[in-house]
Design a protein around this nucleic acid. Structure first.
Lengths: 264, 264
DNA sequence: GGTTGACCTTGACGCTGCGTCAACCTTCGA
DNA sequence: TCGAAGGTTGACGCAGCGTCAAGGTCAACC
């Protein structure tokens, strides 16, 4: 008669695994000797080897039991299904490999390549890193909600940023981030912003933002407000001058019209 | 401010996952409102999306934390290692697919093809199924211990079984399985067996068994004893006639010599 | 016959990434 | 004002064992 460790070593498994198979009901509990030790016969080795053969082929233990006693056709069906599962798992890892291969450090985490290129362009234009990161986070939010719209948005923004006055404005914003609420330069900033808005005949200024949901717009605005101390005050000043919002800047009356429209 | 379910839906994950990331320390716990609800800002959405991006690429959660703050070179190293793991997992499933594909129902579980062929040959020669299964189990034990010797053993056995007198003996054994201890036909059977042993000049009778360990031989003998009621008695009768064992039948004195040899 | 070391027993936690109750409190819309 | 919907913590479940823990047993050596 064999002890559990002898049984295990004949079958090439660990003692712990044997006990696990007992607990799972895959291998019947053998007789115990006077001291409570399990005692096995050679047939148990055969059973254990058969169990391991299936397990080594990727059969989940929960199905090993049925397969050991299955007829040829149920066996074939089960094998087919297990093979399907294995194929699916392989495909999953292959997708993971593709994705992780494309993940370089930094911006490309969670952003499509065109967005990364846009952010790099901002850096090349001398936009301070702090602002670029703010942009990056905003784009991450947009990309998560509207991935298929990203090329559209990015094309529009990429065109805008090539306008020197826009780029200048961005560069100045870096200082604004440090302003404290009540800073005396805020009204003038609001004036400049509104002037730029009203002069800007560029059609691109308004094109794609319409597709963004109000929720997303509010989310982006709130990020601006929470990252920049004077953001709320600036938005208030701008609103006094007839424009509302930040992510989607629009005339106050057209915002009202939008709300009416949505309410219908 | 966002509730947990709003946060989760912006990032495309479940509420449970968000809490899990809190528990794991991947996502910092936000402030609570007066009623104890978690309240998130937009930055939390960004963090969550970045976490999911890594997780979706197969990065284990335990490593996501470091990767989120890693520099380019550590990031690249980590990505390399994760990719290695993914490749290994893919190879593992591919091996599983190969093995499970070769697993038909029945004998081929845990046996190499040549052994399956041998068993099928037994069936073709009219050996009763019960004996074939006994053979199969014995071969499973041998294959588990000495897989690389299997072709050798099987060739030897396949040659033996083509001897009509050997095949006859096998067929008769089927009745013997049902004999009760003390059956009067046992002495005559022992005589016939010994006569066959002593007449058998076939060199194959003894060739490869020498490579089997004594342990394995004892295991196989014990299986014979536990499956066949008269086995022990038959072995005793055969031993009175100068031969010992079953799996490895040899003259009593040569068995003594073997033991002496092993003891040196 | 006592000690030592190897082996046996049951019980329980750990790992991975959440899903899924349970039991209870809060908020919100009709 | 009530019920549905959503929030909270706590805990179990899954797969397949690895790995202590705490103790009883066996075999061999002195």
């Amino acid at each position: 008669m064999l002890t559990i460790s002898q049984l295990a070593s004949y079958a090439g498994v660990t003692v712990r695994a044997v006990r696990h198979y007992h607990a799972k009901g895959l291998l019947p509990e053998p007789e115990r000797d006077s001291s409570g030790y399990r005692r096995y016969d050679a047939a148990a080795v055969v059973e254990l080897v058969r169990i391991r053969t299936l397990a080594d082929a990727g059969v989940p233990l929960s199905r090993v039991g049925e397969l050991l006693t299955a007829g040829p056709e149920e066996f074939a069906a089960a094998v087919e299904e297990i093979d399907r599962r294995l194929r699916a798992e392989i495909r999953e890892r292959q997708r993971h490999r593709e994705r992780i291969g494309q993940l370089a450090a930094g911006d490309s985490l969670a952003l499509p390549p065109e967005a990364v290129a846009y952010l790099d362009r901002l850096r090349a234009l001398g936009i301070p890193e702090r602002l670029v990161e703010g942009e990056r986070d905003a784009w991450i939010l947009v990309a998560a909600q509207l991935p298929e719209q990203m090329p559209f948005y990015i094309r529009s923004k990429s065109a805008q940023i090539e306008d020197p006055s826009v780029a200048d404005f961005y560069r100045e914003l870096d200082d604004v981030v440090d302003w404290a609420p009540g800073d005396p330069r805020l009204p003038a900033l609001a004036d400049r912003l509104v002037a730029q808005l009203e002069s800007g005949g560029d059609a691109e200024w308004e094109l794609p933002e319409d597709a963004m949901s109000d929720d997303l717009v509010r989310l982006l605005d709130s990020m601006f407000v929470s990252q920049v101390p004077v953001a709320a005050e600036l938005m208030r000043l701008v609103e006094e001058r007839g424009w509302t919002g930040w992510t989607r800047l629009e005339r106050v009356d057209s915002a009202r019209a939008r709300r009416r429209h949505r309410a219908e």
